[in-house]
């Protein structure tokens, strides 16, 4: 694989993420790590499945016009993927930066909600929405990255959980932005107005926007000691 490592960006739970160059262009290399604490059968099942799913979904989403990293290379033997580098800052840095005006942050959060709905309209759950996995471009667009836990799904519950995972992380990491989730929901809900009803996907009708939001509100009441 013609990838030249420049800098390790992140030591994730499942993979090491490197920035570097691929055929002369700036790119990201995601190297899956074997997890010694997991039984090899389970590790292999999860690793292979997750990596294949990620590669396939990146291609599918890109072809359908979503703003996701472009898959450049895939090496199942070395367990690595190479994809284009999305320019911008992770949402976590934006939320922790007091110098960014509130209305700008709210706008970014609405765009985040919209990007999530655009993904859900493809009948795809992200599976690991965290403020590290959302890149804010210089144009304030929100690009979702890291599809290692993403899957094609048609069950309302899993879309609700997708939002809930982000909600928990927002509450934990960014408690001073109490209205963050509301802005995300607003962007999520507005998506249908802007783009019309979701089109059918090869597996059927994607779960509707209102159904997801209703389920999300239900899941919020289900966890321990909610407010």
């Amino acid at each position: 694989m013609v990838f030249i490592d420049e800098q390790r960006l992140h030591l994730g739970a499942e993979a090491e993420v490197w920035r570097g160059s691929w055929m002369g262009q700036s790119a990201i290399r995601k190297q899956r790590r074997n997890r010694s604490w997991r039984h090899p059968d389970l590790d292999d099942r999860l690793g292979r499945r997750r990596m294949i799913a990620e590669a396939r979904l990146l291609v599918r989403l890109y072809r359908n016009g979503l703003n996701v990293p472009l898959l450049l290379d895939c090496d199942m033997f070395e367990q690595q993927l190479v994809m284009s580098h999305v320019q911008g800052k992770p949402l976590i840095e934006i939320l922790n930066d007091p110098s960014i005006p509130d209305d700008s942050v709210m706008n970014i959060l609405k765009n985040t909600g919209q990007s999530i709905r655009m993904l859900h309209r493809q009948a795809v759950i992200h599976g690991d929405l965290s403020t590290n996995n959302i890149i804010v471009t210089p144009e304030n667009e929100a690009v979702l990255i890291d599809f290692g836990l993403a899957r094609i799904e048609y069950e309302t519950e899993l879309f609700g959980i997708d939002l809930h995972v982000l909600f928990e992380i927002l509450g934990a990491s960014h408690p001073h932005r109490k209205d963050a989730i509301d802005a995300i929901i607003e962007g999520y809900a507005a998506c249908e107005d802007i783009h019309g009803p979701a089109e059918n996907t090869p597996g059927g009708q994607p779960v509707g926007m209102q159904d997801v939001l209703d389920r999300f509100n239900l899941i919020r009441t289900r966890v321990r000691y909610h407010g």
Binding site: V165, A172, S173, P175
Partner: peptide, 22 residues
């Protein structure tokens, strides 16, 4: 038995980053 949570101190309080949904 009752709890399964992952907790860390962030901004002056212990916060729940993830937990069991059932």
């Amino acid at each position: 038995g009752g709890n399964t949570q992952v907790i860390a101190k962030l901004q002056g309080k212990y916060r729940v980053l993830g937990e069991t949904l059932d």
